[in-house]
Amino acid sequence: MISPSGLPAQPAVSTGRRRRDGGRSILIAVVSTLVFFSVIGWVIVSSPSWPLVQHDFFDAEVFWRYLPVIGSAFVTNIALFLITEVLVLILGLFIAVLRSLPGPVFFPVRLVAIAYADIFRGVPSLLIIYVLGFGIAGLGIPGVPNDPFFWAAVSLTLVYTAYVSEVYRAGIESIHPSQAAAARSLGLTQAQALRYVVIPQAVRRVIPPLLNDFIGLQKDTVLVSYLGLVEAFRTANIEQQSIFNYTPYLALSVIFLVITLPLTRLTDYLVARDRRRFLAGAR
């Protein structure tokens, strides 16, 4: 027996069996998934208060009516996280470099950088937003704006710069010292070695964790609603209170998923690709 490719039949039999096995595992996966979600769905739908919950949270008419309203308010969140992300990328690297400056002369600089990262990672974001947005803005110092959007951007930038600087620092420390030594041996200064050799490699290596922090930042833009900024969450909140229905929150959740899911998938893909490369490199 000869297979269509012209090869002897023997290998074709074994690949055929593998393919059948593949088909069977897909079938098992489909059945198991259907059973699993059917049971959960049945438990929820058959619960005594389901009609009430369905009306309060899953009202299709309310969903479609408020989706555009909340969507247009979401533009504020997008503007906020885009501006903040750019600032965080720049400042985070700056703090990480400050923290990796060697020698006793730079001890105070390192100390300030460490204290900053510790404090802003250790205090809940919401408290920082309150303290800066109401506290500093409330001082009424001439020339300091008291626009909530401004303070929202400042707070989120400070919080996420602290996280991202740690990510950058881990990346810088993961580059083997022999790379800096090779650069120094060519006569490059410490700063040049960092700029041309260490940082470019470190940044490539930390792109997946950076994207992870950005997903967190995008979600945290709802926190600034506490400053009185009418963004998407605040809008959903206002609508919910006027119609006594929670479905606007569902609409906002869907909007967030549309934004964060692609980023989440991209991050997972990059992590998997890095692992493949690492394994290939390890040989």
Partner: peptide, 17 residues
Amino acid sequence: NKIRRRIGIVFQAFNLF
């Protein structure tokens, strides 16, 4: 840095960028 630019060194592990 001035000294090093006049001395080339090649390492066991290549250390290319």
